[in-house]
Amino acid sequence: MAPDPEPTRRKLIDAATRLFAEHGVNAVSQAAIVRAAGQRNTAALVYHFKDREGVLRAIVAENVERLRARRLALLGEAAAASPSAMRPVVEALVRPIADLCDGDWRDRAYLQIHADLTGHPVWSSEEVRERVHKGGAPEVLRVVAQRCPDVPDDILEIRSLLVGAFVSRAASARARGIAEGAPEHAFRMSHAKFVANLVDVAVAALTTPVSAETLAADAPPGP
């Protein structure tokens, strides 16, 4: 009977997850992943993933699928609860990411990786970037746009990018503190309050009225 390849595959994924989270996606070599996984040479990684980018794709894929499922479930609950309330819709965007802080080491490590990839998109291939953005956020943001008709599409698009980056960075910073053993009082608020406050900030950023100055910024000068 042929040996089960899954344990080796899992060791490589876990080793890469730890290294990418601790050192940054761009700072980890294929050889370093192999060593950390306890493998003798790079043949194991090549066999399972082809290359370093393949390991990264696998990490992103398994996490994005979970995020998408959670976001769409929360979005369904929001739609059933109210046809117009904004906060539960934005919570569907924010909570699945922020709750990774309260998960296991793999969840917190993925937060570091997610923040790294979204903050430095040139560090990954187009395929990886596309996978990162398939975590259910576009579906949620379409509902945000429907419930926020007074914000022009171009402004809402930029606000969405800013909110996504802010939430990712805030959750990543908290996750790193937990991973490094920071005492509970260092975080100033409980996980539940941290998430609720993130949702508050995201709602405010997405829905605040557009100022006359912003609306007039691209207008041609008067006579």
Rank of each mutant, 00 (worst) to 15 (best):
188 R>S: 03
69 A>Y: 09
124 S>W: 00
18 R>L: 08
139 E>S: 13
116 D>R: 07
67 L>S: 10
181 G>H: 13
168 S>L: 15
45 L>I: 05
171 A>R: 09
54 G>H: 10
48 H>E: 10
136 G>W: 06
202 A>G: 02
82 S>D: 14
129 R>S: 09
156 L>T: 04
17 T>R: 14
143 V>N: 04
185 H>G: 02
196 A>V: 03
109 A>F: 09
135 G>V: 10
176 R>N: 06
22 E>S: 12
137 A>W: 10
139 E>A: 15
129 R>K: 08
45 L>S: 03
215 L>R: 15
165 A>T: 05
157 E>S: 09
107 D>H: 14
22 E>R: 13
115 A>H: 12
124 S>E: 05
151 V>W: 06
79 A>I: 13
146 Q>G: 03
180 E>W: 02
20 F>L: 08
167 V>T: 07
146 Q>K: 09
57 R>F: 03
22 E>N: 07
25 V>N: 07
30 Q>F: 00
122 V>A: 14
82 S>H: 11
24 G>L: 09
13 I>R: 14
51 D>V: 04
67 L>F: 12
142 R>V: 11
208 T>R: 13
186 A>C: 01
155 I>P: 07
129 R>A: 06
201 V>I: 12
34 V>K: 01
206 L>Q: 01
130 E>T: 13
5 P>N: 02
148 C>M: 05
70 R>H: 15
144 V>C: 03
72 L>S: 13
80 A>F: 06
41 N>Y: 07
71 R>E: 13
82 S>A: 10
37 A>M: 04
28 V>M: 09
137 A>P: 01
124 S>T: 11
101 C>A: 14
69 A>F: 11
14 D>P: 01
45 L>V: 08
168 S>W: 10
157 E>A: 12
54 G>Y: 10
28 V>N: 04
34 V>S: 05
65 E>Q: 15
69 A>Q: 15
15 A>C: 07
5 P>A: 03
205 A>G: 02
81 A>V: 05
201 V>C: 08
215 L>C: 08
74 L>Q: 15
195 V>R: 09
152 P>Q: 11
27 A>M: 09
146 Q>E: 14
120 H>F: 08
53 E>Q: 08
36 A>M: 04
31 A>P: 01
31 A>W: 11
216 A>S: 15
165 A>D: 03
159 R>Q: 04
59 I>Q: 06
197 N>C: 00
38 G>Y: 03
7 P>E: 00
120 H>N: 14
220 P>F: 00
26 N>H: 11
87 R>V: 07
35 R>K: 14
25 V>S: 08
105 W>L: 11
210 V>F: 12
165 A>V: 01
24 G>A: 10
71 R>M: 12
35 R>V: 10
198 L>G: 06
223 P>H: 01
112 Q>V: 05
62 E>N: 09
48 H>M: 11
197 N>R: 07
125 S>H: 03
188 R>W: 00
31 A>G: 12
187 F>G: 05
3 P>N: 00
221 P>Q: 02
218 D>W: 10
192 A>L: 09
198 L>S: 08
219 A>P: 00
129 R>Q: 11
66 R>G: 14
61 A>H: 14
28 V>K: 06
142 R>H: 06
20 F>N: 07
55 V>K: 06
108 R>V: 11
101 C>E: 13
24 G>Y: 09
27 A>E: 13
206 L>D: 02
57 R>E: 15
221 P>K: 02
